[in-house]
């Protein structure tokens, strides 16, 4: 038992690795805000393409969502980070992560938006446009608020997944939370920094997971 505590909950080592982990947390938060924001915007456009009356646009957006939902995010990340330099395109780890996860997330967000947009009755579009609102105004002021409210739990649970996903950035040595924890582990030969990183993620995400469950129960009732 002592060995276990010493290896996984070593307060001394945790305290020493704390500054490094906070630095990593800051990078994780930056990554999250970039990927979530871009994903939410990109996903909306893909979803609108999916609902379009032009067939080619529909096909492209369906192909896009299926393609990027079929590829594991890590494969996408490695392909962009390690593969593109072969074609003469060199990008920073941060940009590689943002691009890879944007492709992945915007497809997931797009599917959620799509469900939301379908849930808004067609009459709403027609009514809003008959009052003289343009299609874009109708979307922004009438349809989107209702659509988003209807799929809020799914948007939220997808966002939780995005935050968890950023931990993959450690694989390409971007010094975010998990990477820094791994560094601290290899210097100290002790898993406590990793456990501390896990605690960081729990503090960050447990409230959101609870909220998702809460929403889902309320919708079911």
């Amino acid at each position: 038992m002592d060995i276990f505590i010493d290896q996984f909950f070593n307060i001394d080592i945790m305290r020493k690795s704390l500054p490094l982990l906070f630095k990593g947390l800051w990078m994780t938060l930056q990554l999250c805000s970039a990927v979530i924001l871009l994903g939410l915007i990109g996903g909306l456009f893909v979803a609108l393409g999916n609902m379009s009356e032009r067939r080619w646009l529909r096909w492209i957006s369906i192909a896009y969502t299926d393609l990027f939902r079929a590829l594991p995010p890590l494969v996408l990340l490695i392909f962009i980070y390690a593969g593109l330099p072969f074609a003469g395109i060199n990008i920073s780890p941060f940009a590689a992560v943002v691009i890879a996860f944007l492709l992945n997330n915007s497809s997931y967000y797009a599917e959620v938006y799509r469900a939301g947009l379908i849930s808004v009755a067609k009459g709403q579009w027609e009514a809003a446009q008959s009052t003289g609102l343009s299609p874009v105004q109708t979307l922004i002021h009438v349809v989107l608020p209702q659509a988003v409210r209807n799929v809020l739990p799914d948007l939220l649970s997808n966002t939780v997944e995005v935050v968890k996903l950023t931990s993959l950035a450690s694989v390409i040595s971007l010094s975010e939370l998990l990477y820094n924890a791994g560094m601290a582990r290899s210097v100290t030969y002790n898993a406590s920094p990793l456990v501390l990183a896990a605690l960081f993620y729990l503090v960050l995400l447990w409230p959101l997971v609870r909220l998702v469950s809460h929403f889902q129960r309320r919708l079911a009732a």
Partner: peptide, 9 residues
Amino acid sequence: ALPPLVVIL
């Protein structure tokens, strides 16, 4: 809530 990669490591 936990990223699987953290638990794996």
